[in-house]
Design a protein around this nucleic acid. Structure first.
Lengths: 138, 138
DNA sequence: CAGTATCCTCCAAGATACTG
DNA sequence: CAGTATCTTGGAGGATACTG
């Protein structure tokens, strides 16, 4: 039923709501390879497909294509095909993509900077519940 | 066999490498509910379990517990149990968690601020390829 | 209220093969 | 080089029932 309130019209979103468009964007960014791709391109340099493929250790062709297509569709990067032989395709962040890439890069930097503290927290946590699940009724 | 190079010792990480610990942290943050939980707690206020549950529209008990436990383990939030009846459990960001929550909140804000531009990009993209749009995300 | 404990579904992600 | 096109699968995520 129609609530009589058009969120799109009012530009008023609750990111916690299940059908909030910005939340969908958040979920896109949360894709397994999305953040790494954004970080790789964050400096504004154009990169070729296999260049990205090599940089994102472990990514498959399919997943990289899928990730890049999704980012292109959202307007975060451009895909330029040069009709040469062999083909040459370059990916480059748009202005919009550059903004989000900067933020994601800061998160990546934070991860690296905080990794020691995080590892310590993990160790402490794992030690607190050190008792292996007791075979209570097994 | 020791490779002779201890990354942990040197504090030298490549976030693109497949067994880079910071990359694992990045993947934690990329969890479906992690960013939303961080944003919900970003203001530093403590929140109770069901309070978070209501806020994160669509989350199940299992997923919320799992998300919060993971964040607790990484040292991003604390879980405080008050031995009352009925039980009362409060979740609150740590200083470390506050840092990342601020960054994630900025990403959420960016999503909301950019949604119109993104929607326009999507429409343009879908029109360029004159066949059925890919159902990557609604 | 704030969880466990199970069971199950589904699709993101991977593997593999082929191509302009 | 930079992709499609299929097929397959692990496990993230969900549904449901029970509990201190």
């Amino acid at each position: 039923m129609d609530t009589g309130f058009d969120h799109e019209k009012h530009g008023c979103y609750d990111v916690f709501s299940r059908d909030c468009p910005p939340r969908a964007v958040l979920e896109l960014i949360a894709g397994k390879w999305t953040m790494l791709a954004l970080v790789a391109l964050a400096d504004g340099r154009a990169m070729r497909f296999n260049e990205l493929r090599r940089r994102l250790d472990g990514v498959t062709q399919k997943m990289l294509t899928q990730t890049l297509r999704a980012l292109e569709r959202e307007g975060l990067l451009t895909r330029t095909v040069y009709p040469t032989v062999p083909p040459r395709v370059e990916y480059r962040l748009t202005a919009l993509g550059g903004e989000i890439a900067k933020l994601v890069t800061r998160i990546a930097a934070w991860s690296t900077a905080s990794i020691d503290e995080i590892r310590a927290a993990r160790a402490a946590y794992d030690q607190r519940l050190h008792h292996t699940p007791r075979p209570l009724s097994a």
